[in-house]
Design a protein around this nucleic acid. Structure first.
Length: 396
RNA sequence: GGGCAGUUGGCGGAGUGGUCAAUCGCACUUGACUGUAAAUCAAGCGCCCUUGCGGCUACGUAGGUUCGAAUCCUACACUGCCCA
């Protein structure tokens, strides 16, 4: 039996969006779905029971981080990722490719993978920031300096796949290079060609057939490279696809549409690391089935909470005596039991419960939002829902 | 009544003749965070002008010494501890 079974239940009229069902060895995922990030085999601050209770269907962990600690052998001896962390449900692992970017170029450059209008220029101090990089890339693979203890490690596509097979998630990703949004067309072209060679090597190295391997489309901001990449990755016969890399905020949606027009329709597509509210709507409309993002959980720990009206800063002093839920009508555990005043107090006192309650709220919010998108596809109200929701939601 | 110590920006607390509008922490405000090196990071925080190695008022109060005082002197006020 194939590791994965994906069926499309309903298509969005006049767009690429669809609602589907993804069957994995550890359970079913109704798509589109938001995948909480649990980098180190834990969704920070929550128990797996809590993650499940807030509505999440699947969790994403990270190969690089689990390789460094506790080590893939330990995870394997612990029964594999989902058992080791006492989750039991569907899981996926990212290949470590993103760390090529986040520990490499992004470090010291103050650059994120999504380029906003105000930052379309190259950083000056290339030389200086070179010192802070923990990564160097060559044709064979990537050499990392551990951010934990400074030890040197080497990742190749083969190694990433071998580690991911030890970790044992239901869905694993090909090893790719995530580049900066600032690089030139020529550099991007060279990069995707390498990513393509790595994709092929990842595929050839993959032996565990109870795990589904997803190929990753790159190409950055350049439409023709994106299309070329989607075509190439599609032809390698993966069981699903990741849409990775960096974007220009302004044309992310057109790029995603282009990629999904090119990818085969009958296989699942996962948009890697995207999770702002507007982006989720645009992605779903353009045929994305899965999203993961560190944003809701990180924002939660930083006191930034999602509400239907926009982001809400829980740390502000004017919350001190607001004895009302973070969001009226929200069905999450936090909102049904606690007030802004209390959660604010927890944040100001640096109490651990603050992070838990905030994370529960943010994940519930975003998981349910994508669930509602799915429901709206099913009953043909997606566009109305999108319009209504976004007219109310403002990014702080 | 006597002795000693102290009084600094919203709070705590540095500074003890010049580059001090005043270290630092807290509080406060704002910004950032998108396949998690993030329970993190950045900026601001006397008043005024968008401006500037700008102007003004400032370190209990009032005087004084000095080219120059938060820093030295005098008096006063208040606070804490000790002796009566």
């Amino acid at each position: 039996m194939a590791a994965l079974e994906f069926t499309i239940e309903k298509r969005l009229k006049g767009a690429l969006g669809r609602a589907g069902i993804l069957k994995t060895p550890h359970g079913v995922v109704q798509t589109p779905a938001f995948v909480p990030v649990g980098t180190l085999a834990t969704v920070k601050s929550l128990t797996p029971e809590e993650v499940r209770a807030l509505g999440a269907q699947i969790i994403l962990a990270n190969t690089y981080h689990l390789f460094l600690q506790p080590g893939e052998e330990t995870v394997a001896k612990g029964g594999g990722l989902t058992k080791f962390m006492n989750y039991g449900g569907p899981t996926m692992t990212d290949s470590g490719g993103f760390q090529v970017f986040s520990l490499g170029f992004a470090r010291g450059h103050g650059v994120t993978k999504v380029l906003k209008k105000t930052e379309k220029r190259l950083p000056r101090d290339e030389q200086e920031s070179e010192h802070s990089k923990l990564v160097s890339v060559d044709e064979e693979g990537v050499t990392f300096t551990s951010h934990i203890d400074g030890t040197t490690h080497r990742f190749t596509p083969e190694r990433s796949i071998a580690i991911q097979e030890k970790i044992g998630a239901d869905i694993i990703f090909a090893f790719d290079e995530c580049t900066s949004p600032l690089i030139s067309y020529e550099e991007m072209k060279a990069s995707i060609e390498r990513t393509h060679r790595w994709a092929k090597r990842s595929r050839d190295a993959h032996t565990r057939k109870d795990q589904a391997l997803f190929g990753i489309v790159q190409g950055g901001r350049y439409p023709d490279l994106r299309k070329q990449s989607a075509q190439y990755i599609a032809d390698l016969g993966f069981e699903g696809f990741g849409i990775g890399g960096s974007f220009d905020k302004d044309d992310m949606t057109s790029i995603v549409a282009l990629v999904n027009e090119t990818l085969p329709e009958n296989k699942p597509r996962h948009m890697l690391g995207i999770g702002e509210i507007e982006d989720l709507f645009e992605g779903v409309e353009r045929g994305v089935d899965l999203f993961d993002c560190a944003l809701p959980t990180r924002h939660a720990r930083n006191g930034m909470l999602f509400t239907a009206q926009g982001r809400y800063d829980m740390c502000r002093a004017d919350n001190k005596e607001k004895f009302e839920p973070i969001e009226a009508g929200c069905g999450c555990y936090t909102c049904t039991n606690y007030t802004k005043a209390y959660v604010h107090h927890l944040f100001k006192a640096n109490e651990l419960l603050a992070y838990r309650l905030a994370t529960i709220h943010n994940l519930y919010f975003i998981v349910h939002l994508v669930d509602r998108m799915r429901a709206s596809i099913m009953d043909d109200t997606f566009f109305e829902f999108k319009k209504e929701f976004l007219s109310c939601y403002k990014k702080a």
